[in-house]
């Protein structure tokens, strides 16, 4: 190397290429190390910063691990009763149609107690964005079986693995709501590698942009890990997610511009 460049020469304001967005507050997130919630929060915050809509965005938080999301995003937020985030977001969007409204829900919130609200908000085609974090388990309450728990997957209430004969089949909410005429954009993403994070960010941006079109609801599922609930290290949990979650919950677009992908 001709030029000897030390760290002090590189760490200068003019060379800055990436830093935490200002839309995220400086509070330390309470999430476990390696949890996908943190990454998903940051992506939403970055999209809000890029679109310059910090003052015009209202988020609706769920019950679950992400219940304290309002501490981490420096925007207007409303806490909803368990599962009722799409109903609350419907009201906010109808009263303030110029605001960007999103809900952020886990699988216990969106796919269990809030199934009715989710399906009806999707069917009515409310102009909101729904971000659905699917880790296949009830993370906050101690890793119990959720509707999205995979067949054979161990949880604290299915210690021998989920028996579909007795406990029913795992629920693919994203495919389910894609069938409804009210949804405009339905996609499934992940946040475990740099490439997947960049793709997920594009999907989140699309979900916000779609609100200008007033054509229907955008739902972005993010398949995530729950290393504490799965009892693995963060790196092992991501590997397990790729090997076990992705075959059943394959990442990719399911519905684009109101049309199912792969079907005419």
């Amino acid at each position: 190397m001709v030029e000897n460049t030390g760290i002090s020469d590189i760490v200068k304001d003019e060379n800055l290429v990436y830093q935490k967005t200002k839309v995220l507050t400086d509070k330390v997130m309470h999430y476990c190390p390696g949890c996908g919630h943190g990454t998903a929060h940051r992506l939403i915050a970055e999209v809000i910063e890029e679109m310059d809509i910090q003052a015009g965005t209202i988020g609706v938080t769920p019950v679950g691990c992400a219940v304290l999301m309002y501490n981490y995003l420096d925007i207007d937020m409303q806490e909803a009763a368990h599962g009722r985030a799409p109903a609350v977001a419907t009201a906010i969007k109808r009263l303030m149609p110029d605001k960007y409204v999103f809900t952020y829900q886990g699988d216990g919130d969106l796919a269990a107690i809030g199934t009715a609200e989710t399906i009806h908000a999707c069917n009515r085609g409310e102009n909101i964005a729904v971000f659905f974090i699917n880790n296949g388990i009830y993370g906050m309450t101690g890793g119990q079986m959720a509707p999205t728990t995979l067949s054979g997957m161990k949880s604290s209430t299915s210690p021998y693995g989920r028996d579909v004969q007795m406990m029913g089949n795992p629920l693919k909410m994203t495919e389910l709501v894609a069938q409804l005429p009210g949804t405009w954009y339905v996609t499934r993403q992940a946040v475990h590698t740099p490439a997947s994070v960049r793709k997920a960010k594009k999907a989140i941006r699309q979900a916000f942009e779609n609100q200008k079109l007033k054509k229907g609801l955008s739902l972005v599922e993010i398949v995530s890990n729950c290393n504490s609930g799965w009892k693995m290290s963060p790196v092992e949990a991501n590997k397990w997610m790729v090997e076990n979650m992705f075959p059943f919950y394959p990442p990719g677009d399911i519905k684009l511009e109101g049309k199912m992908v792969g079907k005419e």
Binding site: Q19, Y31, T39
Partner: peptide
């Protein structure tokens, strides 16, 4: 980009 806690600049 992958850091869940956004601690890296």
């Amino acid at each position: 980009v992958v850091c869940p806690d956004g601690v890296i600049t």
